[in-house]
Design a protein around this nucleic acid. Structure first.
Length: 600
RNA sequence: GCACCGUUGGUCCAGUGGUAGGACAUUAGCUUCCCAAGCUAAUAGCCCGGGUUCAAUUCCCGGACGGUGCACCA
């Protein structure tokens, strides 16, 4: 498949094209045309069915603009911020932090302020890797991959377009856990746009500035929850583990999900489970499994939040592209929002049996501490409390000594407090459970890249009756149209009228149907072939003459084989085919139409 | 961001210092009982800005967009 051919077809037939052409175009933005939008929506519906409905998860829809504080917490403000230095000699741009890391012991230069990196470049005489010119004295510029905006009028409140849909789920966790009635595990999904101000958008739909993600955040109790691995234990997968990627003669590991998890190739059973679910889903929507693999991230390429990560990759035009990521994010996101935000990002985990524990507490008599220590009284009380938890024996004497930082910048000092004033006691309390921070498993899908993959994998050419033909072998579930309806010829009003009626009936039955009576029948078949319409319904005279019920012919796209089906059965049969039914079954049940057409 | 190359009807291309031509597609009509058939007609284009010139789609400069490589990034 030549990529240029697919791009040409995509433009000509209305799958996708660069946006804003009338104004010169805008790099990184694509508009889905009528066919592409339908295909994309069907992919989203199939994803929703599998990852939301079949898993018993819940879908939400969060805003695309979020305030700066969210991204301070999530880490995107720092880690999506690249430090670039542009060589004055040759004009090439380089990651300033990477240059510094290469020649110093500093491991995380990204965290340093820009001025400091500039100094380090000068102090270490760092030269341009491209041309060798000195880089000292040049500005280090921040380039943040997030789109910035203002919320509200004037200077407003700084905000950003979300770089991933996930944060919209994480920030609402305190409420979402209520909807799950506090029970782990539960999963929240979201399908929607995300934005990254890419330095250099490339490759059609592959790297866009606005793109659609379908994400599932699976919240689990890492101690207790296990995935229903049996459901996908026997699913065959092609894995490309990190060890194989780094080996000289590294090879794929063809195995099953069950084995891969048992042998520890896939570290997390949860990640393994979703790899299995994804494998089945990709097959269902028409990804060519011979051009598909799961690749483990190398240690160095993992995102800032990911503990272990696998990508789903498809081969498109000779390149492997990432179409989904499966990350074990641990408690990174919820902990950060718990620390930065106001609400509690934990769930209460009830013990099987309430626990009775002895807890050392103090109840300091503030009417004594207040007059005695003035402004330091609160600090003294807090120190007593800490000490009680750490060393209850300290309260056995007449006085207790604790260390407090003096107010007004005084040095730390030791103070003695009457044990009686501290009011130390050991209480017996019943604990029914504890607050835990759930861990997150995140399958995150790129919808546009999936669409691109489906088109690339479905693009076929063959010969029909000696004429070359291009067609898209899209799965009926995702094809933009379910069927097309034609009168075989237009010089017979009966055929035209019945075709109109059949099309209307099929639409009323919920099918997406094209109607076309322009040009020869062969031309109309080819039009539908090119947009991947799986079935063409043709009304001919044989179907309306004679005594029996009205019939029409149904042509299957890939084989061009035809059967004759009663009009009354048509909607039901087409719906069955869309739901995954096999055309071969219909070939058995209905009369085959001889067409003399040969495909090869 | 850098370098090189490119940008002409819907699509793919040809061409020119005096504003353009083909193929396919599309539309209408004729024809037509199963795979891009035929006939007739019609619609439709020089990426944007500036410069040189009597005149620029063509030459020059800049920009936008696209492709490739580098860099960067999911």
């Amino acid at each position: 498949m030549a990529d240029a051919d697919l791009v040409e077809l995509a433009k000509r037939r209305g799958f996708f094209f660069g946006s804003n052409g009338a104004y010169g175009g805008t790099a990184g933005f694509y508009t889905f045309g009528p066919q592409g939008a339908a295909l994309k929506r069907n992919v989203e519906d199939a994803w929703r069915d599998r990852f939301t409905l079949q898993e018993g998860n819940r879908e939400i829809e969060a805003p695309t603009v979020m305030p700066e504080a969210v991204f301070e917490a999530s880490g995107h403000l720092d880690t999506f911020d690249d430090m670039l230095v542009e060589c004055a000699e040759c004009g090439s741009s380089h990651r300033a932090d990477h240059l510094v890391e290469a020649v110093t012991d500093i491991e995380d230069a990204e965290a340093l302020p820009g001025e400091e990196v500039e100094e380090l470049i000068a102090d270490n005489d760092i030269a341009c890797p491209t041309c060798g010119a000195e880089l000292a004295g040049l500005d280090v510029e921040d380039f943040n991959l997030m789109f910035a905006t203002d919320i509200g009028p004037g200077d407003g409140q700084p905000g950003y377009l979300r770089p991933e849909t996930a944060q919209g789920i994480f920030v609402e966790f305190p409420r979402l856990k209520e909807y799950a009635r506090g029970n782990l595990p539960f999963g929240i999904t979201q399908i929607g746009p995300a934005y990254r101000n890419e330095i250099s958008p490339r490759g059609g739909l592959l790297r866009l500035r606005e793109f659609t993600q379908a994400e599932l955040e699976q919240f689990i109790d890492p101690e207790a929850d296990e995935p229903p691995l049996d459901r996908v234990r026997d699913v065959d997968v092609r894995l490309y583990p990190a060890t194989e990627q780094q080996a000289e003669d590294g090879d794929y590991l063809d195995t099953t999900i069950g084995e891969a998890v048992e042998e520890g190739v896939i570290g997390s059973p949860w990640v393994g489970y979703y790899l299995g679910v994804a494998q089945e889903w990709y097959e269902r929507i028409g990804v060519d499994t011979n051009r598909f693999r799961f690749r483990q991230h190398l240690a160095g390429e993992r995102a800032h939040y990911a503990a272990d990560c696998w990508d789903a990759e498809s081969e498109v035009d000779g390149d492997w592209i990432e179409i989904a990521g499966f990350a074990y994010r641990g408690d990174y996101d919820l902990s950060k929002h718990d620390a930065y935000g106001d609400d509690s990002f934990t769930v209460f985990k009830r013990y099987d049996e309430p626990k009775t524990v002895e807890r050392a507490t103090v109840d300091p008599d503030m009417s004594v501490l207040g007059p005695e220590f003035g402004g330091d009284a609160a600090a003294v009380a807090e120190a007593l409390e800490t000490l009680a938890g750490r060393d209850p024996d300290a309260f056995e004497g007449d006085t207790v000594t604790v260390e407090v930082d003096g107010s007004g910048g005084d040095d730390a000092r030791e103070v003695a407090v009457d044990a009686e004033v501290a009011n130390f006691s050991v209480e017996t309390v019943t604990e029914n459970g504890e607050h835990i921070t759930p861990h997150v498993v995140e399958p995150s899908f790129g919808v546009g890249r999936t669409v691109q993959t489906l088109l690339a994998h479905a693009y076929e050419t063959d010969e029909v009756d000696g004429e070359e033909r291009t067609y898209l072998s899209l799965a009926p579930e995702v094809a933009p149209r379910d069927a097309a309806v034609f009168p075989l010829v237009t010089n017979d009003d009966r055929l035209v009228a019945l075709a109109d009626r059949v099309a209307a009936d099929l639409r009323a039955a919920g099918l997406a149907v094209a109607h076309d009576d322009s040009g020869s029948i062969g031309r109309r078949y080819r039009r539908q072939d090119e947009v991947g319409t799986p079935f063409c319904v043709t009304v001919d005279r044989d179907g309306i003459e004679g005594d029996g019920p009205e019939t029409v012919t149904v042509r299957e796209r890939d084989s061009a084989a035809q059967i004759r089906v009663p009009v009354d059965d048509l909607a039901e049969e087409l719906a069955g085919l869309r739901a995954g039914g096999s055309f071969d079954d219909l070939l058995d049940r209905y009369e085959t139409v001889e067409t003399d057409v040969e495909t090869e």
